[in-house]
Amino acid sequence: MQISKLMMVNAALMCALVFTDTGCKNADGSWRWPWSKDRSVLGTGDGVNDVGSGFSGATDLNRITDEMGNVISGARFEDVLQPVTDIRFNPVYFGFDSYSIPPQEMPKINAVAQDLLQNNNHVLVVEGHCDERGSNEYNLSLGENRAQTIRSILVNLGVAADRIQTRSYGEEKPAVIGSGEETWRLNRRGEFALYQR
């Protein structure tokens, strides 16, 4: 009872707020996202789509909740926003099996922070990558930690945390195909993708 009441209040609030975790209910009972790219990103609320996310495909479970009973949300920038294609940032390179940032790579992250601080309508996805060596499942997690490290630095530089999301490609999307030290160095990287909100 209490939870559903809370969620209704929450949903009403969300109509005004962008990038929070619930959608708005349409007259027909379906859920609408204020920033949806098109009307096809509609959840019917019947379990076909996840009520709490902007995910556009069919979901397995109606909703997933944490230990406190809160709905865990997707609301990924990739699902609901248009990419900014005319601004590119240089990739940040990492050491082998490491997710700490070498000092010489810091200015690249500063440049990204400057853009986000100056353009309030920009949001960011930090993308983590690994070289081909080692377990590809572990590399997915390692790439995510690389992206998260860059994200923390951006937050420390003053960018609001909810403006930065992460995705890891692990070893699945190398910048350079092949093997050898130089190839591996160029593939251990963090990349930046801006989205317009």
């Binding site: 069919a58 979901t59 397995d60 479970l61 997933i64 949300s73 997707g74 990924r76």
Partner: peptide, 15 residues
């Protein structure tokens, strides 16, 4: 025959 997302959340979803 079908495909459904189990976890499409922010960050990494795997394994």
């Amino acid at each position: 025959g079908y495909r459904k997302a189990l976890a499409p959340f922010r960050g990494l979803n795997t394994g």
